[in-house]
Amino acid sequence: MSAGGGPRPRVLVLDYGSGNLRSAQRALARVGADVTVSDDLDAARDADGLVVPGVGAYAACMAGIDGLGAAPVVRARLAAGRPVLGICVGMQVLYERGDEHGVRTAGIGALPGEVRRLAAPILPHMGWNTVRPPAGSVLFAGLPADTRFYFVHSYAAKADPDAGDTIGEHGEPFAAAVERGALAATQFHPEKSGDAGAHLLTNWLATLA
């Protein structure tokens, strides 16, 4: 799969000390992006697309992002209509705050609402699950309704169906993906979701100017 015949879109995967970035880098390169993994904020401002990854604890991820001073860059990009893709905890930190074991941590605040522990008998929600995207979704265009994506998380934000959020369910409904202007985010890991994930990343790359 490739993003088309034009110049390869320049994507920066933000390196703020969170886990395994190699997979995101390789998965994006596989579908035709020119990918850099970097903590350089100027490069993060200039890239055609910015990916905010994230695994582990909300507070630890925000500490990494704040340590780098990256939150204003993310907000500035979105204000200017420049694409940002959050993945897993990288999606969660786009909300106003996270609540883990009663500890509240301020997020980047690009999305309204709070990330909370799912009410489910078995956590983490780990494995391949289906999602319900809205009609006209760009990220999920061309993917069959029963497509499964790989999730690993215990926390999530509430879906806002009026805003066109994609709904997932594990114990309760949650926001599996959001698409709001330049902001895209997935609670699942497209970089670990095989061909379905590659298809979604191709769709995202096609939105980059």
Partner: peptide, 8 residues
């Protein structure tokens, strides 16, 4: 929506 049983 039910998470699939994984075969590993």
């Amino acid at each position: 929506m039910t998470v699939a049983v994984r075969v590993i």
